[in-house]
Structure formats: C-alpha cells, structure tokens
Computed example of a mutant assay.
Amino acid sequence: MPNAVWLRFYKMPFAKVYPAYIAKAERKGRTKAEIDEIIRWLTGYSQSQLEAEIAAGTDVETFYTKAPALNPARSLITGTICGDRVQDIEEPLRRECRYLDKLIDELAKGKAMEKILRAG
C-alpha cells in the first residue's frame, strides 16, 4: 500500500510535475523536446495526446493508467533514484513514476538519448 505522500502525488495533476522535469533538464543544457521524447517513449502517448493530457489537468495516476502503450523495454531501466532501487519497487504505479524520474535523471546527467531510450 502506498504511503500518504505517494497517494497525494498520484492525485496531483501531471501538469504540475511536468515543468519540474523540464526545468531540471534545461538547467543541464537539455531540452523540453527531449523530455517529451522520453515521456512518449515510456508511455506511448503521441505529442498531441501528451499535450492534451497536460492541458486537461490529468492526475499522475490517470496519466499512467491510461497510457496508450507502456514501453516493454522500460523493464531495462535499473538503478537508484531518491534511494529507491527502481527495479525492486513492488507497487506498480510508484515504479512507473520512478521509471520516468530515472530517465529524466539520466538525461540531466548528460547520457545520450539512444542509451536513455534503451536502443541497442
């Protein structure tokens, strides 16, 4: 069962989290376009669908549960983010959130997009 902090996070509009991802990337010389590419790769949303979900104020939980096609290669995302070993998180929604956190972290650390997107 998720704790109270995570329960509040899941109900937060994705549109409130999204600017923080962009700001983190831009501080490190990366772009909003790269953030969008990562989100599209992870969730299967098209760019127009992503923009529509953000504009609609869709909460984080719904954003992930209604994702068109969660990428099966996301299981290749491993490592630690905020003290959590991503691959060991049992609660599915929290794991999905941490997958995106990990990918954004890799982008901010300068990793190449093909490695972030687990291509080859």
Rank of each mutant, 00 (worst) to 15 (best):
P2R: 00
N3S: 01
A4I: 15
A4Y: 06
A4N: 09
V5F: 13
L7P: 01
L7Q: 13
R8T: 13
F9P: 00
F9R: 11
Y10M: 14
K11D: 12
M12G: 01
M12Q: 13
P13E: 04
F14P: 02
A15Y: 08
K16H: 12
K16Q: 14
V17G: 04
Y18V: 13
Y18T: 13
A20F: 10
A23F: 08
K24D: 06
K24Q: 11
K24G: 03
A25C: 11
K28R: 12
G29P: 07
T31E: 08
T31D: 04
K32S: 02
K32G: 02
A33T: 10
D36I: 06
D36C: 02
E37K: 12
E37M: 07
I39Q: 01
I39K: 00
I39N: 01
R40G: 00
R40D: 03
W41A: 02
W41T: 03
L42Q: 04
L42N: 01
T43V: 07
T43M: 09
G44W: 06
Y45N: 00
Q49W: 06
Q49R: 10
L50C: 00
L50S: 00
E51F: 03
E53K: 12
E53L: 09
A55H: 09
A55S: 05
A55F: 02
A56I: 07
A56V: 06
A56N: 05
G57Q: 01
T58Y: 03
D59R: 05
D59A: 02
D59V: 11
V60E: 06
E61I: 02
E61A: 15
T62V: 14
T62H: 09
F63L: 01
F63S: 01
Y64H: 11
Y64P: 03
T65L: 13
T65M: 10
T65F: 06
K66L: 05
P68V: 04
A69Y: 02
A69Q: 04
L70S: 00
L70N: 03
N71P: 08
N71W: 03
P72F: 14
A73Y: 06
A73C: 05
R74N: 06
R74W: 10
S75Q: 14
L76I: 05
I77P: 07
I77V: 15
T78Q: 12
T78E: 09
T78N: 08
T78C: 09
G79M: 08
G79E: 06
G79H: 10
T80C: 09
I81N: 08
I81A: 06
D84C: 04
R85N: 14
V86H: 06
D88Q: 14
I89Y: 12
E90Y: 15
E91P: 07
E91H: 15
E91L: 15
E91N: 13
R94G: 11
R94Y: 13
R94Q: 15
E96H: 15
Y99P: 04
L100N: 10
L100E: 13
D101P: 05
I104C: 06
L107P: 04
A108L: 07
A108N: 05
K109H: 10
G110R: 08
K111R: 14
A112N: 03
A112G: 00
M113F: 13
M113W: 12
E114V: 13
R118S: 10
R118Q: 11
G120E: 14
